[in-house]
Computed example of a mutant assay.
Amino acid sequence: MKRPGPLLTLLAGLVLAAFLLTLNATTGTRSASSSYQEQSPSPAPVRSSQASPTPAPTPSRSGTADADYAGRTDDDAAAIAVSVRGGRAIAYFCDGRTRESWLKGDVEDDGTLRLTGKHGAKLEGTLEDGKGIDGTVEVDGTRHAFAADRAKKPSGLWRATATVRSAKIDGGWIVLKDGSQVGVVTRDGEPSPAPRIDPETGAVTVDGQRLTARPVTP
């Protein structure tokens, strides 16, 4: 019986080596894959499909309602009007003869007003559910309590400015809910009683010249 030749022996060795290499490669791949899977992080917990409750909106405070207010001082010595818009306020105090004052300032969230004007004038009051204002106003060192109801047009605060016969004209009017008017016109800083305006159009004649008064807002 002949023994296999050297060539056959060599071929058998090569086949065996190739088989062993293939086996090792397959085993290593599986081992690496298994190791990677073991080290993979756990999936994130699934969140509940129920959404978190949305916070209820903060209700707006009616005390800061945008509106106009007009009334008289408790001693009936003067009239006062206040216009409120966007957290700001402008007010006018007028006795219809020679005393007047324009005041302005902020309105707090709780409806509190603290307004100031020239020569130390000041107004302190509180908006009452958007229906009116109660407070005090101090002008020329004299303090007056007042109450002003919510005004409906044409009631409220009006103003006209112009130059007439080289004089600077500045007029302010408060139209009350009963239709009465209280106003002062200053000519180059000199005050005097104001003529009536047409509350429907704001038309007014001052020193022979026709002017137009307009509603005042902050």
Rank of each mutant, 00 (worst) to 15 (best):
A147H: 14
A81M: 06
R99Y: 10
K152D: 14
S83R: 03
A160Q: 04
G117I: 00
T142R: 14
R143I: 05
I133S: 00
E128G: 03
E108I: 01
H144S: 14
R159M: 12
R150D: 01
V137H: 04
I133D: 00
A167C: 04
A145W: 13
A91Y: 03
V84P: 02
F146Y: 12
D95L: 07
T116I: 07
G132M: 08
W158A: 12
R143H: 05
G87W: 06
D140A: 10
T163F: 08
A162F: 10
G111E: 01
G132A: 11
K104C: 09
D106S: 11
Y92L: 11
K152M: 10
K131V: 08
K118R: 10
W102E: 04
A160S: 15
L115M: 09
I80D: 02
D110K: 04
I90C: 07
V82E: 03
K168P: 02
D76V: 07
V137C: 04
G171R: 01
D75E: 12
I80S: 04
P154L: 06
Y92R: 02
E128H: 11
R85S: 13
V139L: 06
R159F: 13
A89V: 06
A91L: 07
D109H: 05
R88H: 12
T142C: 03
L127N: 05
D149K: 12
S166P: 01
R165H: 15
K118D: 09
A78G: 04
K168E: 11
A121M: 05
V82A: 04
V82G: 02
L127R: 02
P154E: 04
